[in-house]
Design a protein around this nucleic acid. Structure first.
Lengths: 209, 209
DNA sequence: CTAACGTTTGTCCAATCGGTCAAAAATTTG
DNA sequence: CAAATTTTTGACCGATTGGACAAACGTTAG
């Protein structure tokens, strides 16, 4: 669908990366419409016309960012397979998702911003690639349920609940920290969350003997 | 803290309500900076200067909206008390929260938008009123754990996970519908979600005998 | 050196933004 | 009714926005 790979110089590669990094920071905290090219340019340490030399439109930056984001964002779910033990498999999926919320909160917030506003730019991806992937994994989970490895539930809503609980620690970070207060809202909150979520999901999914 | 109650005519009451309703629609889908006074005025069926006659600044509309929102948004948590059976109490809290996500998705998205952007306008409320309320309810839940009524866990993260899973169906609605597809993404999705969440939390929290 | 090419910047533009203002229109009050 | 008050509007303003453009600057190849 895309044209032939654009030939780029070393400087172009570097500057484009610099801009994308700056844009991630700005977009994820202000949203698309709330962010200005000037803000991104300043965060990237260059002038506005200079930035527009590398990305001709504001939307192009956002688009490039979203494309990259989705690939890494769905990686944990892609890794879920029915090779190992079901509960172990789910446990490590939850852990990987929570680690992403901890290590890439800006990516999570950028994604949340897009979805919140009706996903105007990535709707086709949600209905296509994402739905296909989720359906695929839901089938695997259903297999585990039929085999009596985990309790019978709705696999799609199970996946939703894992997304919701883990991404909550990135998207609603300020609220989490405000409620936990200075003592418990420090770096340890992710380990507390990991312990809690593991217990909730694993105990809640263990087959009833 | 506020001045004496502003004396308002019938028209002022009605028009202000009209504007707030329109602003909820616009703000919740575009965010604060992404929304324009013109959009709100058009949605409310009046001219921009006319709107500004009732609310002098764009921020005033948003502020009024947030104040009202927080009261209703925290109502379900306020109702949580240790009068009844713990598991029943938690079950109905989850149900109430999910009903709010279903019936007031715009309010949920407005709140999510604010938090996502660092809660610049309601930070004091999070650290004050909200934290106090959550700490209070966490103490009740802790009591249940000590009494062996529910399994021992972190009460704060339990509350977070209930918030996350229920609000997910409002905030990420487009994604949920896209993934579920036309068949399962209809009106029944909230009942499916209710069944799933009830099972997850109740089974996950039942004391181990 | 010089020509070609890639990079950077200052300046500018039209559109949109939040908000003002005076005057017209509608409503309430006596 | 008429006066007073409230409501509505069109015209306008300065600031900010996304983006265009040509000229200047830097770099590299012959």
């Amino acid at each position: 669908m895309e044209g032939s790979a654009p030939r780029r110089t070393r400087i172009q590669q570097e500057k484009r990366e610099l801009i994308l990094e700056a844009a991630l920071e700005v977009f994820s905290t202000n949203g698309f419409r709330g962010s200005t090219i000037d803000q991104i340019a300043e965060a990237a340490g260059m002038s506005k016309p200079n930035l527009l030399y590398y990305f001709r439109r504001k939307e192009d930056i956002h688009e490039t960012l979203m494309e990259r984001l989705l690939a890494t964002w769905l990686a944990p779910l892609r890794e879920l397979d029915d090779i190992g033990d079901p509960l172990t498999e789910l446990r490590s999926y939850i852990r990987r998702k929570l680690e992403m919320a901890r290590d890439f909160p800006r990516e999570s917030r950028l994604f949340a911003n897009e979805i919140l506003q009706g996903a105007p730019r990535i709707m086709p991806l949600l209905e296509g690639e994402l739905k296909t992937l989720v359906d695929e994994k839901a089938a695997i989970i259903k297999g585990w349920m039929r085999a009596g490895k985990i309790v019978r539930t709705d696999p799609w809503h199970l996946i939703f609940s894992i997304w919701a609980t883990t991404q909550h620690y990135a998207d609603f970070d300020v609220q989490v920290r405000a409620v936990l207060g200075p003592d418990r809202g420090g770096d340890g909150r992710f380990e507390d969350a990991a312990r809690f979520l593991e217990q909730l999901f694993i105990e809640g999914l263990k087959p009833k003997g």
